[in-house]
Design a protein around this nucleic acid. Structure first.
Lengths: 354, 354
DNA sequence: ATTAATTTCGGTTACGTACACGAAAGATAA
DNA sequence: TTATCTTTCGTGTACGTAACCGAAATTAAT
């Protein structure tokens, strides 16, 4: 049972009384508006300091009638993959939670396979007047350009899902790609012997996106190198994401080899699993990414052994909340927030929360 | 870019205007207080329905000057294990978040090895006047008695960390013990061959607590049974938690056997790891529970291979928030909220969030 | 010294809801 | 009918902060 000293919550009124000024004046220094002499300003600030005054958020939001406009720019959910459903879900969750606090989230979507749509939507955001941006910087150069516009308008922005370092974003929320590749390799280590052959599969159409996969591959290879494991590691890049294309590439890749484990560097792992199943190839271990329905189906059946996932819903949720905390509560954000690297198996997927 | 219809946020004032009554009358039906004729009550309710009125939480908390008193009853952090630090951290986090909403959390702690202290603290809570209780029902009968008191006073209660089913709690937040044991077995399956011997170690002083460990053991054994794995599985119960006692028991247990994997059914796994290290026993795989500093140290060194963890901080956080949501926002809670079963290894522990 | 311009500050209302208090309307009894 | 009681409802103030508007104090210009 705690008996710590009950701090009486003081408000502007008490501060005004002690400083022998009106609450309006206190309000002015709180928002460092002009119109207060240096002397009284100092006096009031001292009292604020002394009393450890914390403004009442409720009263503040209630009295301030202006609504906060946030904008998000993320890929649209396509028929190819519904990965971005998850971050969007988190974004909507956050929106509902803070809607009554006068926050509105305007949603803009672009086509992952079309840089033009990204630029177009980004321009819409620039033209709208918003107070903060949540962005999936999938196209690096275009993102940098967009950011320049934000900076010149004084709009803070948060990166989600993939980072563009050195761009002075409020924060980055997403995976540490390298580390997740490294972990995948560790899990692989349990599944194969030193003499077994390993295949890395990168499936991605857009070159920018491909870049992210390479980071995972580096981490993956690093593990085997650091631990002096001498497995043969092959790799293929598949640049057409349709199943037929994956199938053809996989057939070729497995020819005349004795691959024992396949590492698919993104959520497209279900295509590979489907191929293995349809070809009646068994005895192969498979590791991939993301908690998608198709992937889980194969996980249940044992075609996929491990999925690595990084809480996409929470990424969206935290992205919005970071902007809210910064703009409304004026809390500073962690510059980099790496999401936990979750391991999903047949046995724990039921309890997983994105 | 969404263009859904902007719902104008309406308040009691608008409702009052439409119903041609005063806001006080609207307020009365909102809180279904007495003093309103059935006719006007029906009229007002219809309008509320039609307009899909959502009360403004900020204004509500601001105007209502009564503070909400929550009580928690959890084990004290002992020198033996600081596991309960984590839930407490989450509880404090939640408290800070909602403190400005007029919520206060009163903390009561009991000694895990002393039922009497549990009863005593529970009585303190009953005598205090609180509006909700968060409880770790470690001692089953005593908890049931406590709950009876809560029910008779109309106080809602939430279970955390371990469940007592059929007690009509607002909700249970914590692990699915059986499933986590099952997962541990699955991971073990990767680490051992069919001919290897396995040792299950239960370390716990209190019998009630022991009961929880058995659920994990069941899940563990079930996996091997379901998958027709024929490993010899031995087991020991250690009823004294001090290291010397663990050491003696372990020495005896390993004698004349060829154990290849040890499954420790709770967070005491570091004692076992310490024993192995001091005895220079290598080549043994170890699986245990919980993200504690001692455990992580051994994980880093490779003495422990896997830790299973179930977000104790979040358990505390969610426990308080569930009460808050129920009492303040009158949101119903999920009856059972099983925490995700997280797998922690050398490679991902850095990114783990409790 | 007087006026004008500027800086500094206080009074006041508003945000959406809760609730005490008292007034009006209706019901009952004489 | 009038008096009394009960039910039903409206007025007004408060919660802690934001911000407008105008007043007082200070400074600058004549």
């Amino acid at each position: 049972m705690d008996k710590d000293s009950e701090k009486e919550l003081v408000g502007v009124k008490e501060i005004a009384r002690r400083a022998k000024v009106s609450i309006a004046t206190v309000d002015r220094v709180l928002h460092n508006r002009s119109g207060v002499s240096e002397k009284t300003k100092a006096k009031i600030q001292a009292i604020i300091e002394e009393l450890d005054y914390k403004p009442n958020i409720l009263a503040r939001r209630l009295a301030s009638k202006k609504v906060l406009n946030l904008a998000i720019l993320i890929p649209a959910v396509s028929q190819e993959t519904d990965y971005w459903n998850a971050p969007l879900t988190g974004i909507i969750q956050a929106e509902e939670e803070i809607a009554s606090y006068g926050v509105k989230v305007n949603k803009y979507f672009f086509d992952q396979n079309d840089k033009g749509s990204f630029v177009q939507q980004a321009n819409f955001i620039v033209d709208s007047n918003c107070d903060g941006v949540l962005l999936a910087p999938m196209f690096i150069e275009e993102s940098k350009y967009f950011i320049q516009n934000c900076i010149s308008k004084g709009i803070p922005y948060v990166f989600i899902n993939s980072d563009v370092p050195e761009q002075n974003s409020l924060c980055y929320i997403g995976p540490n790609l390298y580390a997740s590749g490294y972990l995948a390799a560790h899990l692989s280590g349990f599944l194969v012997a030193d003499t077994d052959q390993i295949l890395i599969v990168n499936i991605s159409k857009e070159i920018d996106n491909h870049h992210h996969l390479l980071r995972k591959e580096e981490g993956f290879r690093e593990y085997f190198s650091v631990n002096n494991r001498s497995n043969d590691i092959f790799k293929i890049d598949i640049r057409q994401t349709a199943y037929e294309s994956v199938k053809a590439s996989m057939q070729k890749a497995l020819e005349n080899k004795n691959i024992k484990l396949i590492f698919v560097s993104n959520s497209r792992v279900s295509s590979v699993a489907r191929f293995l199943e349809e070809s009646h190839i068994t005895g192969l271990k498979v590791i991939g990414f993301d908690f998608l329905k198709e992937n889980i189906d194969f996980l249940k059946k044992g075609t996929i052994d491990f999925l690595i996932c990084q809480k996409p819903i929470e990424q969206g949720y935290k992205g919005i909340m970071t902007l809210y905390n910064y703009l409304v509560l004026s809390l500073e954000a962690e510059k980099v927030y790496y999401m936990p690297i979750d391991i999903i198996t047949k046995e724990n997927y039921l309890y997983y929360r994105n």
